[in-house]
């Protein structure tokens, strides 16, 4: 393989990592927060799709894409708090509710999204950070959407807050031991409802990225399961916000392998290369689940670990 081809593939993977990772990042961060508080919300796929639809619709009607991002977040809060409230009823299983919320969110998005498939809404502007390079591919790869940096910022804040703030401690305590939280005078359900709602907000913003930045239009096949994959990435990232970023970037880069290899003429076996992100996730999951530390890092109140 010549250097030129290798460079093209690496640049494509870098670009893919930056372009594709943002929605994974937001959903994974939202899910991390929810799971840290002791609940699993599998319905974030619904938040993602509904967020994408709402963001596109609001951006189309108001002409302001950032307003669309905000509205997507609000739609995520709506679905998230619904999940949180339903799961606070006695004997309700959060996984089952999550699956119901996933169908509900996508269904609502498809129902109200019909009139927005055709029109073109204003999109979020990317920051051209690659102006210093003569390489067109590299310049393109470094056209980075501000939401990407917002995602990294959110991860840093969450990472810091979990370790150092009172709120972070309360969320972690609720997630690790409900009796301990009660003994400290904390209402576990309130913490969980709030965590699920804020997690829902983040997932909704991730949806806004899909429809307003990349690929940048609304249609019903837009997410194709990215929300579900992101929930899996949380386990892989072992509930650490910073590892969520790494996981999302890796996943994005792996997704770019298939098209990049075909573009440089390595076209045999593209079905296999297109499956690269899933194969990668599977292997890393197996590798990371084998370590005994991963069991320690799981929040103690999660219904899958109890």
């Amino acid at each position: 393989m010549s250097d030129g081809i290798l460079a093209t593939i690496l640049i494509s993977m870098l670009g893919g990592a930056i372009r594709v990772s943002t929605p994974f990042m937001f959903v994974a961060l939202g899910e991390t927060l929810t799971e840290k508080s002791g609940r699993i919300n599998l319905g974030l796929e619904g938040n993602l799709v509904l967020g994408a639809m709402v963001a596109y619709a609001v951006s189309y009607h108001t002409g302001n894409p950032w307003l669309g991002v905000l509205a997507a977040g609000v739609s995520g809060v709506f679905l998230g708090s619904m999940h949180g409230l339903i799961c606070s009823l006695p004997r309700v299983n959060d996984i089952a509710v999550g699956i119901a919320m996933m169908s509900f969110g996508t269904g609502v998005a498809f129902f109200f999204g019909k009139p927005y498939i055709q029109p073109s809404a204003p999109r979020l502007e990317a920051l051209p950070l690659g102006g210093w390079s003569d390489n067109a591919g590299l310049r393109q790869a470094l056209d980075i959407n501000p939401l990407f940096f917002v995602g990294i910022l959110v991860a840093l804040v969450m990472w810091w807050a979990f370790a150092n703030s009172r709120w972070g401690l309360i969320v972690r305590m609720t997630g690790d031991s409900e009796p301990a939280a009660r003994a400290m005078g904390v209402q576990p359900y309130q913490v969980r409802i709030a965590s699920t709602a804020i997690g829902g907000f983040l997932a909704g913003v991730g949806g806004a990225f899909l429809s307003l930045s990349y690929p940048g239009s609304w249609n019903e096949g837009l997410s194709s399961g990215q929300g579900l994959m992101a929930v899996a990435l949380v386990i892989f990232a072992r509930w650490n916000p910073l590892r969520c970023i790494v996981a999302a970037l890796l996943f994005g880069a792996a997704g770019a392998i298939g098209p990049a290899l075909q573009s440089v003429g390595i076209s045999q076996g593209y079905y296999f290369f297109n499956a690269a992100p899933y194969i990668l996730t599977l292997f890393i999951m197996i590798a990371s689940a084998r370590s005994s530390s991963s069991a320690r890092e799981a929040p103690g109140e999660l219904s899958i670990t109890k």
């Binding site: 837009l222 997704g255 298939g258 098209p259 075909q262």
Partner: peptide, 22 residues
């Protein structure tokens, strides 16, 4: 570039970008 699916917007966008890069 084959995407392998009739509708897969993210991969279609990746494929279009990869072709432009090439």
């Amino acid at each position: 570039i084959f995407t392998g699916e009739w509708s897969m917007p993210v991969r279609e966008a990746e494929a279009a970008n990869a072709l432009a890069d090439a």
